[in-house]
């Protein structure tokens, strides 16, 4: 394994680890949930992405195997991280905030508080909203 390949793999490992550490540190440091939400959703995607790229590069350089199934994990995390953040934000709005504390859109209100068109008020919300 050449020095260059080793340097690249080591750099990717260190970048990944540093971003993961920063993400976790941000979650401790930020004062409340909405600002805390920013730290892990961003810093960890590059954190895991860095380690996965390091794994691809390592197996390519050391064993000569072109192993790209690591991409599958990063693809899955890139798809799921926004959904997780969205759900946590919605749950936070539902449990802590009132509609008046947020900027009000023209037309109908936010879907966490307002029911979509066609639903009678006072009824249980339909099953397929969310």
């Amino acid at each position: 394994m050449s020095i260059l390949a080793e340097a690249i793999v080591s750099a990717l490992i260190i970048i990944g680890a540093v971003f993961l550490l920063v993400g976790s540190w941000g979650m401790i440091r930020m004062p409340e949930l909405m600002t805390r939400l920013h730290a892990p959703t961003k810093a960890t995607t590059l954190g895991v992405g860095g380690t996965l790229l390091a794994s691809i590069a390592y197996f390519l350089a050391a064993e000569g195997v072109f192993s790209i199934h690591e991409l599958l994990i990063s693809m899955f995390l890139f798809l799921s991280a926004p959904i997780t953040a969205h759900f946590l934000a919605k749950a936070y709005m539902h449990s802590r905030l009132k509609a008046g504390e947020l900027p009000r859109p023209d037309g109908k209100g936010w879907s966490t508080y307002d029911k979509p068109a066609g639903v009678e008020s006072g009824e249980a919300p339909p099953r397929d909203t969310l």
Binding site: I13, A17, G47, L52, T84, L88
Partner: peptide
């Protein structure tokens, strides 16, 4: 949120252990 971040850290740990 903390547990979700923990899971992401564990994923990275497993990948690095594989390396």
């Amino acid at each position: 949120l903390a547990i979700d971040t923990m899971v992401i850290n564990v994923i990275a740990l497993i990948i690095l252990y594989g390396i």
